[in-house]
Structures are given as C-alpha cells and as structure tokens.
C-alpha cells in the first residue's frame, strides 16, 4: 500500500439487518492492515451511507449485507454515489449473496463481493490491488 497516505474505507451496514459480526471483523482487519477505517454503525439508509462517504472523503465503501436485500441496496448506493460526483469510489462488500447476483451486480459497476468463509486477507489484497491500479492509471 502507498506510503504517502492511508486508504480510507467506509464499512457500512445498510438496511434493517443487525448482523454486524462480519462488518466488525472486516473493520478491525482493515484497521490492523493500516487502513483508515470509518464504521457507520447499524441500520443505515443508502442516503446516510453516501453522505458519510462524501463527508469522510473515502476511497472505498464496503457494505455488509446478510439480509437478502443486496439487489436493492448495492445499486441504490452506487447510483447515489455517482449522483454525488463520487463515481471514483470503489463500492465493494460481502454477505450472503448468491453467485448469479454477484455477477449481475458486477455488470452494474459494483466491485467484488465476498461470500461466507472468505479470509479477510483476500478482501484486503483486493482493495490494495484496486488502489494501486488507480494510482498508476
């Protein structure tokens, strides 16, 4: 990762789902890996998440969705990010998301989505790789 500045990542829990074990584990793992981590807390609307992303000037928004509402929530946050002029922000995440839906969301411009059992290091490598590619492009 870049020496000049830390990557800023917003870990977010959209919707009404309260299962935050994964979000907290991810937030801690990214912090331990040297990222600047902001965690939104629970029950956030897409509007609240995008406002926080813009205000905190983050590079990455990582959403944890275990509620099955991913097909509504990811596209909605993506659209609001674009509208707020934050289309360069990487929107990624994880949760209980069937493979077909992952493929469909990727087609709609969402970054990689990680399923149950993924090591935190895989997600960290992915974000680091994305960031490095951004810097050189």
């Amino acid at each position: 990762m870049s020496d000049e500045r830390k990557i800023r990542i917003l870990v977010a829990k959209p919707g009404l789902d309260g299962h935050d074990r994964g979000a907290k584990v991810i937030a801690s793992a990214f912090r331990d890996a040297g990222f600047e981590v902001i965690y939104t807390g629970l029950h956030q609307t897409p509007e609240m998440i995008v406002a926080a992303a813009v205000q905190e000037d983050v590079d990455v928004v990582a959403m944890s969705v275990l509620s099955g509402a991913h097909m509504t929530l990811f596209p909605r946050v993506k659209k609001l990010l674009d509208e707020a002029g934050a289309d360069q922000v990487l929107l990624t995440g994880g949760g209980i998301i069937p493979e077909d839906d992952v493929a469909e969301l990727e087609r709609r411009g969402i970054g990689r989505l990680f399923g149950p059992g993924t090591p935190t290091t895989t997600a960290i490598e992915y974000v680091n790789g994305w960031f490095a590619a951004q810097q050189t492009s």
């Binding site: 919707g15 009404l16 789902d17 609307t45 509620s67 099955g68 509402a69 509504t72 929530l73 909605r76």
Partner: peptide, 10 residues
C-alpha cells in the same frame, strides 16, 4: 420507505 427491498426476504 425503510422497508424497501426487505419485505418478506428474510
């Protein structure tokens, strides 16, 4: 409005 996308899902 807060229920959007989550009705009957889980």
């Amino acid at each position: 409005p807060r229920s959007l996308g989550e009705v009957g899902v889980c």
